[in-house]
């Protein structure tokens, strides 16, 4: 456990370290309750080349809690968003830290972060199944959520021809 950084300090730390590889960084604050205490969220877009290094630097700050990796199919690219939280354990100073990367659809590959954060295994396996992203170096790449005989090359969260539309079924239909 190291020092408690403010969101501005965290963004500055990464910008100093990675310069132009940090494509976009914004801080969002929202107040809640009567006392209008604020919570902070950082949205940061990084180049996929430096992604693993960014995670390494994040680990130096404080061991982050990886909540989930979510993904968007943005037609040309696939966007992965890693939702971390840092500064937990301190009253009202936790920061939600979202790091996003763009992967080209022709070659959607990214390194695993399981060697730094072993708890990422389940969510990384899920991304392989549902978005067709190849996680390089994942310790276990078996299917987790879908049935073993679920067709290959169908990724339920894709919006293109590899989406699940072929399998779609309306339960209201009577097939008698």
């Amino acid at each position: 456990m190291t020092k408690n950084l403010t969101p501005e300090e965290i963004v500055k730390y990464f910008k100093d370290e990675f310069k132009t590889e940090i494509k976009d960084a914004k801080i969002k604050r929202r107040a809640a309750g009567s006392k209008k205490n604020e919570k902070a969220t950082i949205w940061m877009k990084v180049d996929k080349i430096v992604f693993k290094k960014v995670i390494k630097h994040l680990l130096d700050l404080q061991f982050p809690h990886l909540s989930i990796i979510s993904g968007n199919d943005l037609n040309e690219t696939i966007e992965l968003i890693y939702h971390f939280t840092v500064n937990y354990g301190n009253r009202l100073s936790e920061i939600t830290f979202n790091i996003s990367i763009d992967l080209p659809k022709s070659k959607p590959e990214i390194e695993t972060i399981c060697d730094y954060i072993p708890g990422a295994l389940i969510t990384e396996r899920e991304k392989q199944e549902f978005l067709g992203v190849k996680i390089k170096g994942i310790p276990d790449d078996k299917r987790l959520f879908l049935r073993d005989d679920f067709p290959e090359g169908v990724y339920p969260w894709r919006r293109d021809e590899t989406g699940p539309e072929k399998l779609y079924r309306n339960l209201h239909e009577v097939n008698k």
Binding site: A31, A32, G33, S34, K35, N37, E38, K39, H65, T85, N87, Y88, G89, N90, R91, L92, S93, E94, T96
Partner: peptide, 17 residues
Amino acid sequence: GVKKDVRVDQSYFAYGD
């Protein structure tokens, strides 16, 4: 022993008050 509770760590709903 990990002190991690969203209600304590973050201000949302009225938990901040």
